[in-house]
């Protein structure tokens, strides 16, 4: 759902560019103590995997295709803020190198696919896991919540996209919202399957590389609350 140039009016893309730039700056500040010999290469491989997987459009009903988004995968593997930054990297590369998503819409695309589908959805997932209070190290509950919230992440992002189009006066909300949420609730199933399979594989191979597993039940956002080690 990369928004091209021309779909958003200047006030909308301007505000979203500011919001996304601010969030990116804050994320860089938040991750600084987390950078170690494990996570730096993981940033690279996660970004590359998401880029590659996003190229693989799969057909959904009615002559439409969908593709993997990856924001929840990035956050589950790396934690909220590093995951967010990985999505920013992917979206910036897609925009500047591959003309995928407009430059004026880059802030909006970061907002939808990294803030809403990443930070917000992952925050909701961590909140849910806290509420369910599953014991640390419960892999199956991690996979179940990963599946549901990665589905939700795509739906929420498509809803955010609809609101932006409506605020820009491009299309009425009552027209675009049901259509976008409808098709993306199908695409979200693909998202859930891919995210869950990849997380399951990494959990099997290297559970220490899954941030949501190591820090199970720990809110990702409180100031200084993250495990530095």
């Amino acid at each position: 759902m990369h928004i091209p140039d021309g779909f958003l009016d200047p006030k909308t893309w301007g505000a979203l560019t500011a919001a996304s730039a601010g969030t990116t700056g804050y994320a860089l500040y938040k991750v600084r103590e987390k950078m170690d010999e494990k996570i730096i290469p993981m940033l690279g491989i996660t970004a590359a995997f998401i880029f590659a997987a996003q190229m693989l459009n799969f057909p959904v009903a009615g002559g439409t295709s969908g593709h993997f988004l990856g924001a929840m995968l990035a956050c589950v593997l790396l934690g909220a803020w590093p995951g967010f930054l990985v999505m920013v990297v992917v979206l910036v590369v897609q925009c500047l190198f591959f003309a995928d998503g407009g430059l004026t819409a880059l802030g909006a695309n970061v907002f939808n696919m990294a803030v809403v589908a990443g930070l917000l959805s992952y925050f909701l997932m961590v909140l849910a896991r806290k509420t369910l209070s599953r014991p640390l190290g419960d892999k199956s509950s991690l996979l179940v919540t990963t599946a549901f919230f990665s589905w939700l992440s795509v739906v929420l992002a498509s809803a955010a996209c609809s609101f932006e189009l409506a605020i820009s006066g491009t299309v009425p909300l009552s027209t675009v919202l049901p259509a976008m949420v409808g098709v993306h609730s199908v695409i979200g199933i693909g998202e859930a399957v891919i995210t869950t399979v990849v997380v399951a594989v990494v959990l099997q191979a290297r559970p220490d590389l899954v941030d949501a597993y190591r820090g199970a039940g720990v809110l990702p956002v409180p100031a200084g609350g993250e495990e530095a080690a």
């Binding site: 928004i3 779909f7 295709s65 500047l96 003309a99 407009g102 430059l103 498509s158 996209c161 976008m180």
Partner: peptide, 30 residues
């Protein structure tokens, strides 16, 4: 990979606002 329009492109076609992007000058053409 499938070359069908993605979710947003398809909705734009069906709801008649895909022209807004076709008419727009790309802000970055490099």
């Amino acid at each position: 990979a499938s070359s069908s329009p993605d979710g947003l492109e398809k909705v734009a076609e069906e709801k008649g606002f895909s022209g807004a992007a076709e008419d727009a000058e790309p802000a970055w053409s490099g």
